[in-house]
Design a protein around this nucleic acid. Sequence first.
DNA 1: TAACGTTATGTAATAATATAACATTTATAA
DNA 2: TTATAAATGTTATATTATTACATAACGTTA
Lengths: 132, 132
Amino acid sequence: MQKEHSLSKNQKIIFDLIDKSGGPMKAYSILFNVQKKGIKAPLQVYRALDKLVEIGKIHKIESRNAFIACQNSSCQVSKATAFSICESCENVSEISNSKLLKYLSSFSDNSGMKYSKYNLEFFGLCKKCKSK
Amino acid sequence: MQKEHSLSKNQKIIFDLIDKSGGPMKAYSILFNVQKKGIKAPLQVYRALDKLVEIGKIHKIESRNAFIACQNSSCQVSKATAFSICESCENVSEISNSKLLKYLSSFSDNSGMKYSKYNLEFFGLCKKCKSK
DNA sequence: TAACGTTATGTAATAATATAACATTTATAA
DNA sequence: TTATAAATGTTATATTATTACATAACGTTA
Ligand SMILES: [Zn+2]
Ligand SMILES: [Zn+2]
Ligand SMILES: [Zn+2]
Ligand SMILES: [Zn+2]
């Protein structure tokens, strides 16, 4: 069982926004959206994002500089993430294929590296965009 | 056999720099280093980088906003990339494990997505940093 | 409670990364 | 050669992220 992190005020505001949006959000778009709630500066947003990433409530989509709520409640606190990204409509979803996640989590090679984390991003066309 | 792309002047200058550096380089560090060769503006660098990425001569390390020369001559023109990144010394190397690359290239799930590309980044500690 | 360390917040300034817009030149090829 | 695509040059600007410093809230335990 995982420790339940109680979010601070700013963290909660920002998590709720991202979570409700249902997709990836960019930092300055988040900022714009929470200004009415008193969050006025980029740093306030980035600090909350950093913390939310750290505790695994959100993930950063590195190729898009965007943040998405964890769609996988059992996600190993940001240590093992995989996403599929539609290059046409920019829809993003978290992959929860346990075989894949297991395969990657146990990956090792002869480089001497000790892996503790990974991030995988698949790109392609979603169902909708394929059929256009 | 792959088409041999002949690089333009700027592309060659920038590729040679990255290649010789042996590791990842950031765009503005590249810019600084090529100013003596007449490349004066960020856009000149980014354009060359875009092209070099497109033809698979370099790859972008998304989590670091940095660019590294392809260390894997048979790399499928940027369609399938995997890296290991030391979180302590920031050493980056391209993974060429054919089993892994094959596994990922053939990955598909029931999401309806048609995957055409992926990027994987492993994080951990390299041999050196582990033993410190 | 009081004191302490830790975490979170507020604010301003600035750094770092990347693109838009437009004019011109060079390479490729029908 | 003439058209087309690719690359270059230049200025300005947009976007993403961090530094630095001051203050407040919170949790622990003396
Ligand atoms: Zn997750
Ligand atoms: Zn789509
Ligand atoms: Zn490569
Ligand atoms: Zn290292």
